[in-house]
Amino acid sequence: MVIDLDRCTGCGACVIACAVENNVPPAHEGTTPRTGLTWMRVVRVDDGRSFPDTRSVFVPLMCQQCDHHTPCVSVCPQNAVEYDEETGIVTQVPVRCLGCRYCMTACPYHARYFNWWDPEWPAGMEQTLNPDVSTRMRGVAEKCNFCHGRLQAARAKAAAGSRPLAPDDYQPACVEACPTEAIVFGDLNDPRSTVSAAASSPDTFRLLEHLGTGPKVRYRSRSAAVRESLTRNSVSSEKEQVHG
């Protein structure tokens, strides 16, 4: 997945589409941004310059689908986080989850969310739940899985047509919902795919690349200031603070 930050207006359509697709319940009373359930959220980041040159960039943030050193997979004591070798997608198994939240402390992207409350829908709204995705219960962790329900549906469809699953057979809900087509999704291993082309562009970067987690979500921006503000580590930010 490659996200073009220059195109993101921060409208939130992806966040809403994600919640609808994955049967994420509405906020319980008393929920704050720190206890919310948002598999996908859009964070506004200032580029660090001072007024009036300052600009913000909206960063859609979801599970970065780390590669080899997936921090959450290795720490789960009961294999409730799975890494799919075929697709490279990291999946949470809520019914096996104990709710110890070790995976959440392990995730540097803060892309994992805990069900602090029992999910509750206003009366009648359970009819609007997506039949392809199970609801979760209080006390378990959950996160983005690149719309596993859609992947399964696409697999079933491919199997019914007796053909292998093609990378373009499905698109996650956020990709579909983005009004400015800022998100490109596909098979990064396929050099001919659009996503590979986007990922190989020189203005592409990953979040916290130094940690070596190998995230499969890339971001891009033509603005060097934006790239700098999203990839800077504490070394450079410290300099900034010294300069005031």
């Binding site: 290795s74 720490v75 789960c76 004591p77 009961q78 294999n79 409730a80 096996r96 989850c97 104990l98 709710g99 110890c100 939240r101 070790y102 805990f114 069900n115 219960m137 209080r138 006390g139 378990v140 962790a141």
Partner: peptide
């Protein structure tokens, strides 16, 4: 833990790579 009644899952599906196991 969020689901104490599932605590024994660690013994049933242990992830040997996890320090918590």
């Amino acid at each position: 833990v969020g689901q104490p009644l599932r605590a024994w899952f660690t013994f049933w599906h242990p992830n040997v790579h996890s320090m918590l196991t």
